[in-house]
Design a protein around this nucleic acid. Structure first.
Lengths: 354, 354
DNA sequence: CTGAAAGCGCTTACAG
DNA sequence: CTGAAAGCGCTTACAG
């Protein structure tokens, strides 16, 4: 009872009463605005501590006419890949939740095959003076140029989906590429016997994106070099993404070698699945990345055995939320937030969230 | 610009102005309280629609001195199993987020091996007239008796972790047991060759809990009956949970049969792992359930190969949130919310969230 | 059935 | 450096 009453009273008013000042002054201290004598400030802070005062966040946002605007810069959904629909979803979800709190989120899309579209969007964002930015820094040089400008303007930014090291980003939210490749190695080793062959397939046009695939390949190789050296690892880099190119390369390599498992280092696994199906080679174990419709289709038909997925939706959601937590609640966040490495199979995909 | 200004104005005041009534009357309609003439009500509703008015949830909760209290009834963390620490975590997380919104959450713990403790806690909850209840309805009869009373008092309730069919629960949030067993079958079949043997191990004392294990076993069996009939499935029910009992039973069965994989249908997999390790049988593929410290320890040492986990923390979190969504936001929720079936390995456990 | 007034806990000009 | 007053958008008694 005592406790309850005490709780009721703890607010700026009570603090003001105890400190013998007005609520305006308490407010100044609480929000650490200037214009309060050191003595008064200390007195108030002391009372705050004593009372273990926690501001009512709702009253705060209600009263404050302040409004924040965030910008999100990510690839658009292309017909080539639906991947970015998921992060966008997450961004929209966060945006919906934050609307009531006076925060707006604008999204800008660039073309993964066109650096200039990244640059154009970035410069628009700079013009509009946002309070925070979430971006997928796929193009390294262009991204660095952009965030230099952000820093100059004091605009905080967070990276999602891919990272650039040693930058002043608030945090990175995305996959640990190496580790996911390593996991794929583990999953596949169960089926491989001595002397059998595994094929690694990297499919991508853009050099910047190709780097990512190589990290996964490294992880995959690492597993076998550590745990199972009696299998042969083959690899192919396919630098064109149309099906005809993929088909001819797979033909070439699979005619030459008897392969038992195939690891595709990105969402392009559906093209490989199509090839295997068309050529009645579905007995080959096939694994790849991402919860996309076309991939799930092949998973259902048991052409694809596993998909690895790293919560793309959550990356978008958390990216926006990271800005919110930092700017509104002054929380500090871990610099690196690696997503879980989820394994999707025919049996669990219906329940996958994200 | 136009738009913005319009947005600014939309509030109870503007609605009241347009409808030529006071804000109190608008409030009555908005919250569907009685005491408004049908005509006035319709007029106001019309304006609300026209303006696409959305109430400011923060102002609402600030002004309303109303406060809700939820009760959560789950097993306590015992030395036998740390499983319930996770749902409790989720409950606490939700509770923290909702505190600002004037919602308190009280948690009651019962003993999984003692039905009377369930009954005692349930009756306390009933006495205290909560606005909503989250419970793990492990003991079917006792749970049904309890929720009958809740219904009589008009208290909504949600089930987590296990379900009782055909009740008037708001929703069920938890695993699909059958499907997780089926998935385990899939994971293990990769390694099994014709003529090899898989052993299913069910370890539990309480009959009510044993049912759950049997559902998982059914799923597991189903996989093999559909996809791989050339392996032999052995099984054992161990109805004592101390290590000595488990050891002697495993000794018996493994001496008799040459087993290649073992599927433990709950978190007791660590006891089996201990046995395998002590008896140098770690070459047997071992899978079980739940992200618990003791299980992870064996996962790291590669004694356990896979753990299946169904986001226990999220079950607690969502259970509480389900009440909040329903009671505060009047959202309606899907009756069944199955958790994802996560596969935990040595490679991805560090990133597992939940 | 309806309204005027006060209040939720905080912030914002404005005045001194 | 400080305070009185008004206000954020809603709800709550109270009076009629």
């Amino acid at each position: 009872m005592e406790n309850k009453e005490e709780k009721q009273l703890v607010g700026v008013k009570e603090i003001a009463r105890r400190a013998n000042v007005s609520t305006a002054t308490v407010d100044r201290v609480l929000n650490n605005r200037s214009g309060v004598s050191a003595k008064t400030k200390e007195r108030i802070l002391e009372i705050v501590r004593e009372l273990d005062y926690k501001p009512n966040i709702m009253a705060r946002r209600l009263a404050s006419r302040k409004t924040l605007a965030f910008a999100v810069l990510i690839p658009g959904v292309s017909e080539e890949t639906g991947y970015w629909a998921a992060p966008l979803n997450g961004v929209n979800k966060a945006s919906g939740e934050l609307k009531d709190f006076g925060i707006t989120v604008d999204t800008y899309f660039f073309d993964q095959n066109d650096k200039s579209s990244f640059i154009a969007n970035a410069s628009q964002i700079l013009d509009r003076k946002y309070d925070g930015v979430v971006l997928a820094p796929m193009f390294e040089d262009e991204s660095v140029a952009f965030i230099r400008e952000c820093e100059a303007s004091g605009i905080p930014f967070v990276f999602i989906n891919s990272d650039i090291e040693d930058q002043h980003n608030l945090c990175y939210i995305g996959p640990d590429l190496f580790q996911s490749g390593y996991l794929a190695g583990h999953l596949m080793h169960y089926i491989l016997r001595a002397g059998q062959k595994a094929l690694i397939v990297n499919i991508s046009k853009e050099m910047d994106l190709h780097h990512h695939l190589l990290r996964k390949e490294e992880g995959f190789r690492k597993y076998f070099s550590e745990k199972k050296q009696d299998v042969t690892l083959l690899k192919t880099d396919i630098r064109k993404t149309d099906y005809a190119s993929i088909r001819s390369e797979l033909h070439r390599i699979l005619d030459e070698h008897q392969v038992d498992v195939i690891f595709v280092t990105n969402s392009r696994v559906s093209s490989v699945a199509r090839f295997l199906e068309e050529n009645s080679k579905t007995d080959i174990l096939l694994a790849g990345y991402d919860f996309l419709d076309e991939n799930i289709r092949f998973l259902k038909r048991e052409v694809v055995d596993f998909l690895i997925c790293q919560k793309p939706q959550e990356q978008g959601y958390r990216g926006v939320m990271a800005l919110y937590e930092t700017l509104v609640h002054q929380h500090s966040l871990p610099r690196e937030q690696f997503m879980p490495i989820d394994i999707i199979t025919k049996e669990n995909y219906v329940y996958y969230q994200n």
